[in-house]
Design a protein around this nucleic acid. Structure first.
Length: 962
RNA sequence: GUGGGAGUGUCAGAGCGGUCAAAUGAGCUAGCCUAAGGAGCUAGUGGCUUAGUGCCUACACAGGUUCGAAUCCUGUCUCCCACACCA
C-alpha cells in the first residue's frame, strides 16, 4: 500500500522550500503566462469540481515548465462582493474577517492539490494595495471622459439592494437571484463608456483563439446592426428613427414609440392623454416575468408623424414592445415586412402595405424576378403525383411555390413515415428538372411545418424540396406536364382546386395571409424606387434621404455603457467627492486609496452612508464641507485588470511596472468557465484596450487563447455545495491519493466536456498507479527492446500533442497503452522518460519515483523528453501486430477445439521463410499459454502431419494444433 | 422565436472519409492465484459461423454524395446551452 499522504506532503514541502514555482522576468527565456479565472473565495471551500478546474491549468503549466518555458502561473482571489457581505451580516461578522478566513482555507486546499502556483504573486481584490489601483484607473478614465455620471433608467435588484449592469440581468432577473425580478429605477449612476470601444471589441473577436460559441455570444452581445436614421416630423419637430430596412420605407403605415420614452408625453394629445396614462400604468405594473409571454399592446397617442418622402400622415402609437434605450426608442412600423409590426397591425386593424415582393434565387446565386417562372408570383402550384411504389400510401399531395420560388412538396401521412429520394421522384414523375435544394428546409419548416404539427395535421410530413432548374423552365411543355400528371393551377383557379381539400386550404391561407414577408426582394409601391432589389434600395433610399437632409446611414449596437455603481459596502469606494460649490470633484491621486471604513452599520440602505467619518469630508478644491460618494464599484472592475497585477503584484508606486507587464502579457492561455462569456470577458477586453490607449500596456487583447473547461457532475447534477452533492478533495486524497484523483478527473473525458464523478472510476486509476509502483519494485534495468523503444518515442510525441491540445484523456490513454506493453527489462533512462510523461498529471508520485530511480533533482524542473523519430520503428510495430493477429487465430482455434472436447498440447506455426524472424516463440507461448513450435514453410524437417503449412500466406502463418 | 452544441456498444467516453465491430475506463463472464476473496493476474464481452482471419447487423431516424461513411451533405426526431420583442 502506497502512503500517498506522506508522499504528497513530502514533495509539497520540498517544492515550497525550494520555491521552484516562483518566477522572475528573464529575457533569455521564452515566457508563458498560464492563468485561470481567479475565484471568489467561498466559505465552503473547494470541492472536487474545483480540483478538476485547477488541475487543468496545473497540468498545462507543468507541461510548459518542462518544455523550458518561463511559466507564470499565479492565483489570486476575487474577494470583494455581495456574498461575503451578506454572509457577514448573517453571522454578525465583518466581511473582511469572513473573506480572509475563506482565502486562507482556499490556499491551504490548493496547496494540497499540488497546484504549482507562484504564491509570491498572489493578490486579493479587497486588499487596499489592490483596490487603490481600481480608484486610480477610475480617475484616469474620468480624465479621459471614459467614466461619467448620468441619470439613467437602471436595473435594481431588491435582494442585492443595488443596481445591476446590463450584463447582470438575465431574462429580467438578477444574475444572482434567479427568483428576483429586476426593477427599473431612475438613478444617478457612474458608467464606463464601453460603447466607445464597441467597434474594436467586435472586430478583434476575429483575432481570438477562443471557443467559437463564446465568440458568437460576444458578437451577439455587442449586436452591431447597420441601418439608416430617418427623420420623421411630429408637430414640426424632427424625430429620428432607426431602421435596418430603409427599403421598406414606403410601407410604413404607423409608428410606435416606447412606453418608457422620456418625451412620450410631449406628443400625446389631450384627447388621448387619459388612455395613454392608463396604458402606462398597465405597462408599469406588468412584472418582468410576464414580459416574454406578453402580447404586443399599445395605444394611439393622438399624434401624427409626417412621412419624409410621401408626406403622408402616419399615426403614432405607443407600445410595450419597444425598447427605449435602443436606437431612438421609436420605430417606423412596416407591418407587411416585419412580424412584430404585422401582429400589432392585425390587432389594432391598421393598414398593411406591401412594398417588397419575393424574388427567386437562381442556381448561380443571382436574383431574378419571379415572373420568369412559368407560373405567376404567389401562385400555388399544385402538383399531384401518383404513388410510385405499390400500395404504399405514397401520394405527393401538393406542391407549391415557396417565397423563394422553390417548389415545395409534401407527402400525406400514411401508416409509415414516408420519404422518397430524388431518383424515385424523377423516375415516377418523369420530370427531369428536379433538383434538391440545400437549406431550403429552414424556410419551409420554420414557417409551416411546426405550425401544422402543433395542430396535429400532417404529422408525418417529410420534406421534399425541389428547385426548377432555371434554364430548363421554359422547356417544360404542356405536353410534359400532362404526361406526368403535373397540374399547374393559376392563382385565380387555385381556390376552387383547393376547395376539395381542407388541409390545402389552410396551408394556402397561412402562406398568403398570415405572414409578414421579412426577406429581401424587389420593391413595389415605392415610387421611383420600384423594381430595385432590397439591397440596392437600402443604399439608394439612404442616399436620397441624406441628400434631402432627411436621414443618414447609421450603425447601432446593443452594447450599452457599463454601469459600475453599486450601493453596497464590500467593494472599492468610488473616489469622488460632491461639493455644493464645485459639484463633482475627483479625489486627488495623492489621497487614494479611499479606504473602506470599518465603523459601519449594516441594515437598510447603503452601509457606507452610516459612517459619518467617511461621508463627511472637505472639498479638495475649495475646502468647504462636502460629501463623499458612497457607492462602490462593481466587482467586475476588480477582475478587469487583475491579470496585469500578477506581473508586478507588490508595486506601491504604480498599478504595475510597464516593463514587467510587457514581458508577461498577454496571457498565453486563459482558462475558465463559459459563464463569463459576456460579463468578465467583455469588461476585461474593454479595460485592456483602454489601458493600451492610456499608455500602460502595449497589447490589444488580454487573452488571445481561451479554454473553457467542463463541469464536474455527481449523480447527474453539477457538483455544488447548495445541491449537497460535493466530493471533497481531502476525502479522496486520503483514500486514493490526490494524484489518483487528478489522473481520474482528467481521463474520463475531454476536459472541455462535462464529466461525471464515479468512485468506481477512481479505483481504476488507482489500479493503474499501483501497477506502476509494482513495476518499479520488480523491474530489471538493462536493455530496452526495440519494440518498446519505438512505442516509447511515439508516445512521447502523442502525449505532448495531446496535452498541447488539452486532450488530456487521450494523453493518458497513450501512457496507459505504453505501460501495457512494458517488459521486464528496461533501460533506466527509458523508464525515466516514462515517469516524465506522467509527471504533469501526477506530480507527487512521479517525484517519488524519480527519486527512487536515484535522481537528486526534482522532476518538476526536469526537461520534457525528446521524441527520437529514428527510434520509431513502424515495421517492428507492424510485425507485432501480425504476431498479435496470429495469437488471436491460435486462440480462436483452441477455443473451437476445446468446445469440441479436444485436448490441446502443442501449437505448430508455419511461417514464410522471410517472415521467420518476426515471430517470437516466447512471446507467443506466453500469450497462448501453450507450447509453440515455429517452422519455416520451407523447413524440410518440420512436423506437419496434416500439411497445414501450405495455407501460410504473407503476414498470415498457418497453424496446426494437437 | 434566434443562435450554438450533442445523439456511438451494458454504462462513461474516444474516433470525425478507408487501417472500425470501434481506443481507454467501468461493469459483466470465465480461468488462474489463493484458506478465502468484494485483492491481484489473464482472457472474453453485437449476432451467426468455422481448424482459422468469413458473413450479417450496427455508431438517433430517413435520404444523398462517394469505389468506400460512425465520420461529409440534406431533412426529421430527441436532448442540452446561450440570447431573447435590438426595429
Amino acid at each position: 500500500m502506497i502512503n500517498f499522504k506522506e508522499i504528497e506532503q513530502k514533495w509539497q514541502k520540498k517544492w515550497e522550500q525550494a520555491e521552484i514555482f516562483h518566477v522572475k522576468e528573464d529575457k533569455n527565456k521564452k515566457k508563458y503566462f498560464c492563468l485561470e479565472m481567479y475565484p471568489y473565495p467561498s466559505s465552503s471551500g473547494l470541492h472536487m469540481g474545483h480540483a478538476l478546474n485547477y488541475s487543468i491549468g496545473d497540468i498545462y503549466s507543468r507541461f510548459k515548465r518542462m518544455n523550458s518555458y518561463n511559466v507564470l502561473y499565479p492565483m489570486g482571489f476575487d474577494s470583494f462582493g455581495l456574498p461575503a457581505e451578506n454572509a457577514a451580516i448573517k453571522n454578525k461578522s465583518h466581511p473582511k474577517i469572513f473573506t480572509e478566513n475563506a482565502i486562507n482555507n482556499y490556499i491551504k486546499q490548493m496547496k494540497e492539490l499540488g497546484l504549482s502556483y507562484d504564491w509570491s504573486r498572489t493578490l486579493m481584490s479587497h486588499d487596499p494595495n489592490y483596490y487603490k489601483w481600481n480608484q486610480y484607473f477610475f480617475l484616469k478614465f474620468l480624465e479621459k471622459g471614459l467614466a461619467y455620471r448620468k441619470k439613467a433608467r437602471v436595473n435594481w435588484c431588491p435582494d442585492c439592494k443595488t443596481v445591476l449592469a446590463n450584463e447582470q440581468v438575465h431574462e429580467g432577473k438578477c444574475w444572482r437571484h434567479k427568483e428576483t425580478n429586476a426593477q427599473i429605477k431612475q438613478l444617478e449612476q457612474w458608467f464606463f463608456k464601453t460603447t466607445e470601444y464597441a467597434e474594436e471589441l467586435l472586430n478583434d473577436i476575429e483575432k481570438l483563439d477562443w471557443p467559437e460559441r463564446i465568440k458568437i455570444m460576444q458578437r451577439n452581445w455587442i449586436g452591431k446592426s447597420y441601418g439608416t436614421e430617418v427623420m420623421f416630423k411630429i408637430n414640426n419637430e424632427n424625430w429620428k428613427v432607426f431602421t435596418t430596412r430603409p427599403d421598406t420605407l414606403f410601407g410604413v403605415t404607423f409608428m410606435v414609440i416606447s412606453a418608457q420614452h422620456e418625451k412620450l408625453m410631449t406628443i400625446v394629445t389631450k384627447e388621448q392623454k387619459k388612455q395613454v396614462e392608463d396604458f402606462l400604468k398597465k405597462v408599469k405594473s406588468t412584472k418582468q416575468e410576464d414580459m416574454d409571454k406578453l402580447e404586443k399592446e399599445g395605444v394611439f397617442t393622438g399624434a401624427y408623424a409626417e412621412h419624409p418622402l410621401t408626406k403622408e400622415k402616419i399615426p403614432v402609437y405607443t407600445g410595450n414592445f419597444i425598447i427605449a434605450e435602443y436606437g431612438s426608442g421609436m420605430v417606423m412600423a412596416v407591418p407587411a415586412h416585419d412580424k412584430r409590426d404585422f401582429d400589432f397591425a392585425k390587432k389594432y386593424k391598421l393598414p398593411i402595405k406591401e412594398v417588397v415582393q419575393p424574388l427567386i434565387i437562381k442556381k448561380d446565386g443571382e436574383d431574378a424576378v419571379r415572373n420568369n417562372l412559368p407560373f405567376k408570383q404567389r401562385d400555388a402550384v399544385v402538383c399531384v403525383v401518383k404513388h410510385w411504389s405499390e400500395n404504399k400510401y405514397l401520394c405527393l399531395k401538393w406542391k407549391q411555390v415557396s417565397w423563394n420560388g422553390f417548389i415545395v412538396g409534401g407527402i400525406e401521412k400514411g401508416e409509415d413515415t414516408i420519404s422518397a429520394s430524388k431518383r424515385e421522384i424523377i423516375e415516377e414523375t418523369g420530370y427531369k428538372h428536379v433538383k434538391f435544394v440545400k437549406k431550403l428546409g429552414n424556410i419551409i419548416n420554420s414557417q409551416f411545418y411546426h405550425k401544422l404539427k402543433k395542430e396535429n395535421r400532417w404529422a408525418h410530413f417529410q420534406g421534399l424540396y425541389f428547385e426548377l432548374e432555371d434554364s430548363k423552365k421554359d422547356e417544360i411543355s404542356d405536353e410534359e406536364k400532362k404526361i406526368h400528371d403535373i397540374t399547374w393551377v393559376e392563382k385565380e383557379n387555385v381556390g376552387s382546386f383547393l376547395n376539395a381539400d381542407d388541409d390545402m386550404k389552410i396551408i394556402w391561407e397561412r402562406v398568403f395571409h398570415e405572414n409578414a414577408y421579412e426577406n429581401s426582394g424587389i420593391l413595389i409601391n415605392s415610387k421611383e424606387f420600384n423594381g430595385l432589389k432590397s439591397e440596392e434600395a437600402k443604399e439608394k433610399i439612404a442616399k436620397f434621404l441624406e441628400s434631402k437632409k432627411l436621414g443618414k446611414k447609421s450603425v447601432q449596437y446593443k452594447l450599452r455603457d457599463w454601469l459600475i455603481s453599486r450601493q453596497r459596502y464590500w467593494g472599492t469606494p468610488i473616489p469622488i467627492i460632491y461639493c455644493d460649490k464645485c459639484n463633482i470633484v475627483p479625489v486627488p491621486e495623492k489621497d487614494i486609496p479611499v479606504l473602506l471604513p470599518e465603523d459601519i452599520k449594516f441594515g437598510e440602505g447603503n452601509p457606507l452612508e452610516t459612517s459619518q467619518k467617511f461621508v463627511n469630508v472637505k472639498c479638495p478644491k475649495c475646502n468647504s464641507d462636502a460629501r463623499r460618494e458612497t457607492d462602490t464599484m462593481d466587482t467586475f472592475v476588480d477582475s478587469s485588470w487583475y491579470y496585469l497585477r500578477y506581473t508586478d503584484n507588490k508595486n506601491n508606486k504604480k498599478p504595475f511596472d510597464k516593463e514587467k507587464a510587457q514581458y508577461w502579457m498577454p496571457v498565453n492561455q486563459y482558462i475558465g468557465g463559459a459563464e463569463h462569456a459576456v460579463m468578465h470577458l467583455i469588461y476585461a477586453r474593454f479595460f485592456t484596450k483602454v489601458l493600451r490607449d492610456l499608455g500602460y500596456i502595449h497589447i490589444d487583447e488580454p487573452f488571445p487563447k481561451l479554454f473553457n473547461q467542463g463541469m464536474l457532475h455527481k449523480d447527474g447534477f453539477v457538483m455544488s455545495k447548495s445541491r449537497g452533492n460535493v466530493i471533497l478533495p481531502e476525502a479522496v486524497s486520503k483514500q486514493y491519493g490526490i494524484d489518483t484523483a487528478r489522473l481520474f478527473l482528467v481521463s474520463i473525458a475531454s476536459p472541455d466536456k462535462d464529466t461525471e464523478w464515479s468512485d468506481k472510476g477512481v479505483e481504476g486509476s488507482l489500479r493503474f498507479i499501483n501497477k506502476i509502483f509494482d513495476y518499479f519494485d520488480n523491474v530489471k534495468f538493462g536493455k530496452t527492446s526495440k519494440i518498446f523503444e519505438s512505442k516509447l518515442h511515439k508516445t512521447i510525441k502523442e502525449v505532448a500533442d495531446s496535452i498541447e491540445a488539452f486532450k488530456y484523456n487521450i494523453a493518458i490513454i497513450k501512457i496507459r497503452e505504453l505501460f501495457e506493453s512494458r517488459e521486464e527489462e528496461i533501460n533506466k533512462k527509458d523508464l525515466e522518460i516514462f515517469v516524465k510523461l506522467l509527471a504533469p498529471f501526477c506530480p507527487h508520485i512521479t517525484e517519488e519515483l524519480w527519486q527512487r530511480l536515484g535522481n537528486k533533482t526534482l522532476i518538476s524542473l526536469e526537461k520534457w523528453p525528446i521524441s527520437d523519430s529514428k527510434k520509431i520503428n513502424e515495421r517492428l510495430e507492424e510485425e507485432q501486430k501480425n504476431a498479435d493477429r496470429l495469437i488471436d487465430d491460435i486462440k480462436n482455434i483452441i477455443k473451437i477445439l476445446m468446445d469440441k472436447g479436444k485436448e490441446i498440447q502443442k501449437i505448430y506455426v508455419y511461417v514464410l521463410p522471410k517472415e521467420l524472424e518476426f515471430y517470437n516463440k516466447g512471446y507467443i507461448e506466453k500469450k497462448v499459454e501453450k507450447k509453440v513450435e515455429i517452422y519455416s514453410v520451407a523447413d524440410k524437417k518440420k512436423y506437419d502431419p496434416e500439411n497445414k503449412s501450405t495455407k501460410a500466406k504473407p503476414g498470415k502463418p498457418a497453424v496446426y494444433v494437437e
